[in-house]
Nucleic acid binder design. Structure first.
Lengths: 150, 150
DNA sequence: AGCCTTTAGTCAAGCTAATTGACGATATAG
DNA sequence: CTATATCGTCAATTAGCTTGACTAAAGGCT
């Protein structure tokens, strides 16, 4: 149905998600540059979200990020070169390496969290508290793997 | 505030947007492969959303897509090589080229629109009609450039 | 012990998407 | 009719991943 003489072009949920996510990313990148952490808005910045304070095995990072081990490695190389993380060998298993934050890394984590809260505040201001909560909940529901359905 | 001993990790709106958008893209890609149009889920597929039936100037495509003219050109080269679009010179301005869909291109547009509707239906089923409408509206509001604020 | 398989990480090459830079050709303003 | 801006192209480069080939260390099994 829907007469296809003029396509709806940009009126579908995928496009809306795209635009808003793009906006979030741009805001985040700009603000993190201001914070002196430009790298955190790059692809390797995504990775640090998966590193916990006590450190994680590099392999765990692979699982959590969904990237290949090679991609993870390349990002970690870059992060280590910038002094954000360091790799230490696991004394119990000579194959494994633990990935740890440096002090600089911890600091940038704090800054990133603050910026994320800041952006959320901006979104809340635009939408209203209630609508933002609804949005967040809706996105959360769509994130869950809806494998079975009866 | 918020004791930073364990960061909130993946509990911010940016991450939620990321996950859901990722899911949308994956669904779209899968379904378009099934439709025999794998290329439409690639980067160049994004571009065809901006092409109207009567054709558009290549430069217009640059503005709408936000890409550089070189990037647009490369995508158009690829799309033309796959017989999805064709470029014709503008008789009124020898510099300009109009980008037109081929029949194959039109067909894939129809398929893409159908698939988008299909995914929307799935989302609606997961969320409920009302909640989906709220989500859509919220995203739309966040898309608008909120430049001035008093 | 020794062998086989799995796991962890590395090294190298290649691909896609997008970039910047340098150009040729055509319009348009002065 | 020259100066400038616009439109498109060609070439090289970067970022972010991928696949493939490999080393080294555990762990299981005989």
């Amino acid at each position: 149905m829907t007469d296809p003489n003029e396509p709806e072009l940009l009126e579908h949920i995928g496009w809306r998600l795209h635009v808003v996510f793009q906006r979030w990313k741009t805001l985040f990148a700009q603000k993190m540059v201001e914070q002196g952490c430009p790298w955190i808005a790059e692809a390797r910045g995504e990775l640090i979200q998966h590193i916990s304070r006590k450190g994680v095995g590099q392999n765990v990072l692979v699982e959590r990020s969904g990237l290949t081990k090679q991609a993870v490695q390349q990002h970690l190389d870059a992060l280590a070169a910038d002094g954000v993380i360091e790799r230490v060998s696991d004394p119990k298993d000579a194959r494994k390496k633990r990935v740890l934050f440096t002090d600089k890394g911890i600091d940038s984590l704090h800054r990133a969290n603050a910026v994320k809260r800041e952006i959320e505040s901006e979104f809340i201001e635009l939408l209203g508290k209630k609508e933002f909560a609804q949005l967040s909940k809706a996105l959360q529901r769509l994130s869950d793997p809806p494998r079975a359905q009866g």
